[in-house]
Write a protein that binds this DNA or RNA. Structure first.
Lengths: 201, 201
DNA sequence: GAAATGACTAGATTAGGATTCTGGTCAATA
DNA sequence: TATTGACCAGAATCCTAATCTAGTCATTTC
């Protein structure tokens, strides 16, 4: 760890490295400061607590996912196709990002209790906002039915996506992601779209 | 506990009473046999193990729920309305039945580990079968689209319903059941139904 | 002879006390 | 003024003796 890098940056990088490797409880503040080559007191110049440091790492990690999710939601294709892509991107990203997955899907070995709930709430809130924005755009464009309540639909879509991705991670659910996405695309996508009068016979 | 009742019945009733009160781990076989006014060895004449006794109680409890679920699925109204009623009945019943809820929604204080997973698998399997039957009937009647894959749709509908009910039990999800049901009805229900040619202009 | 019983035991779990650890603080140092 | 690391209250862990419990089966009862 180069000490040319500013202390705060070093601490954030060290914190991410340690939390990803060992999880929240097993990582000590001394671990982080040692890895950052700084004193323990300096940690508290940048973070109010160990928990706040963890949340900062979650938020930085979440931005990486959200960048991909934005691309999925603004890509080409119909709304159902884009939602389907979003779920696939989510499953893919969370399959790889153990730190995010642990809090959102309850992997207690890495994080549990109040800090896990706080991290999950942050993720849920941001993903729901993203979905709500996409639904609003869809309504403005006329590709989503006017009667759809944006906030409720965003919340429900979040729960649906969450469940499908969780089922992918849970072998006993016996629901392969591809099959789930096909059915979801079929059922939920169709339920969302606006009905335009047919153009042909 | 009347000893006119046959021992097996007494054991089942006592097992249910004890497991509901104390959960799986805290209930001992001695607790059950004492409440049933029978000897410990008699327990093993009727159940192969403590876990099998628990599963017998889960199965009996599940039948009570499934009876209600059948009524919901065979009631009046459109398919979306009936699915909506099913989710509401589920939330209601599981809200009251702590024993079933503990295994299906992960309340570790009452049951956890292999026995909890076994109980959850039984519930998932039975509910999915019920949904698949309903979807098959719907396809035969022409009220569900022919293109819907029954088993996948049943699995996805289970996951969706499970997520919505879980969100009802989890305050931090911030998704009231009524709002979720409205949106679900709107989105999923519409996605399922068969498109009949309009009869009017 | 069949059914019921409860004493027994191997392994699991718990309780309690000693020891160690750790998040956060702040006096000392650079 | 910024940084450091010793300090400490409370939390967590470890160890070991004691207790508990699921399952068995020899004995008793009907």
């Amino acid at each position: 760890m180069s000490t040319i890098t500013p202390p705060r940056q070093r601490l954030i990088e060290a914190a991410e490295q340690q939390f990803r490797r060992f999880g929240y409880r097993r990582t000590t503040v001394d671990d982080v400061t040692r890895a950052a080559e700084t004193g323990k007191g300096s940690f508290y110049l940048h973070f109010s607590s160990k928990e706040d440091a963890y949340v900062a790492v979650v938020e930085a990690s979440l931005e990486r996912f959200l960048a991909k999710a934005e691309i999925a939601l603004h890509g080409s294709g119909t709304v159902p196709q884009r939602l389907r892509t979003l779920v696939a991107v989510t499953a893919d990203h969370y399959g790889d990002d153990e730190l995010l997955r642990a809090s959102l899907f309850g992997e207690a070995a890495l994080v549990e209790g109040a800090v896990a709930r706080r991290a999950a709430n942050i993720q849920r809130g941001r993903i729901r906002s993203l979905l709500a924005e996409a639904l609003k755009s869809g309504k403005s464009e006329g590709s989503i039915r006017d009667t759809v309540d944006v906030d409720n639909a965003a919340a429900v879509l979040f729960e649906i996506g969450w469940a499908v991705v969780r089922a992918e991670f849970d072998a006993s659910a016996d629901l392969p992601l591809d099959a789930a996405l096909d059915t979801l695309n079929d059922v939920v996508g169709l339920g969302l779209i606006a009905r335009t009068p047919p153009e042909g016979p």
